[in-house]
Amino acid sequence: MTVVPSDSLKPRKSPRQARSAATVAAIFEATFQVLLSDGIARLTTTRVAQRAGVSVGTMYQYFPHKQALLYAVLDQYLGDVVLAVQAACARYEGASLRDMSDGLCSAYLDAKLRHLPGSRALYVVAAELDTAGLVADVVGRTDQAIARLLATASDAVFDDVETVTFALRSMLVGTVQAVLEKDGSAASLAILRAQLPVMSRAYLVEVSRSRPNTKGMSAG
Rank of each mutant, 00 (worst) to 15 (best):
R169N: 15
G140K: 03
R120P: 14
I146N: 04
A151T: 13
P117D: 03
C105V: 10
A136F: 01
D143N: 13
S154N: 14
R120G: 15
A147C: 00
G133F: 01
V161K: 05
Y123C: 03
G133A: 00
S101Y: 10
V157G: 08
A127N: 13
D130T: 00
L129Q: 00
R169K: 12
Q144M: 07
G103E: 00
S101P: 06
L168S: 14
V164C: 03
T165H: 02
T131W: 08
A167R: 14
A147F: 04
L113E: 04
G140A: 04
G140V: 00
I146D: 03
A121D: 13
K112A: 11
D110Q: 15
A145N: 03
D137H: 12
A111R: 02
V161H: 04
P117L: 03
A107E: 04
A111I: 01
T163H: 13
G140L: 02
A145H: 03
G103D: 01
A121M: 15
A153H: 13
Y123R: 02
V164Q: 05
A132Y: 00
Q144F: 07
L150N: 01
T131Q: 09
G140H: 05
T142P: 09
L168C: 14
L109T: 05
S106I: 14
A111F: 02
T163Q: 10
I146Y: 03
S154G: 11
R169L: 11
V164D: 03
D137Q: 12
S101L: 12
H115P: 10
A111Y: 02
Y108I: 00
S101V: 08
A156C: 07
Y123M: 04
F166D: 09
E128M: 08
S106Y: 15
F166E: 15
M171A: 15
T165D: 05
A132K: 01
D159P: 11
G118W: 02
L104N: 05
